[in-house]
Amino acid sequence: MISVRRDICAYCGCCISVCPEGALELIDAYLDVDANTCITCGICVRACPLGALEVKK
């Protein structure tokens, strides 16, 4: 699973566009991860400019 550090995320959308599965969605300022589609590939983690995403095993 991907976990979002809400204290760090600035809801910019950068991670969403690199997710191959379309598992991320910004609902205004709330980044939502669809646990059913996320394959925990970690691509979004690398794209985040602030370091708000973490892979949680």
Binding site: C14, S17, V18, C19, P20, G22, I43, R46, A47, C48, P49, L50
Partner: peptide, 12 residues
Amino acid sequence: TTVPLREMETCA
């Protein structure tokens, strides 16, 4: 519409 990671400029 997925952007390859290397072709996404990540910015602050």
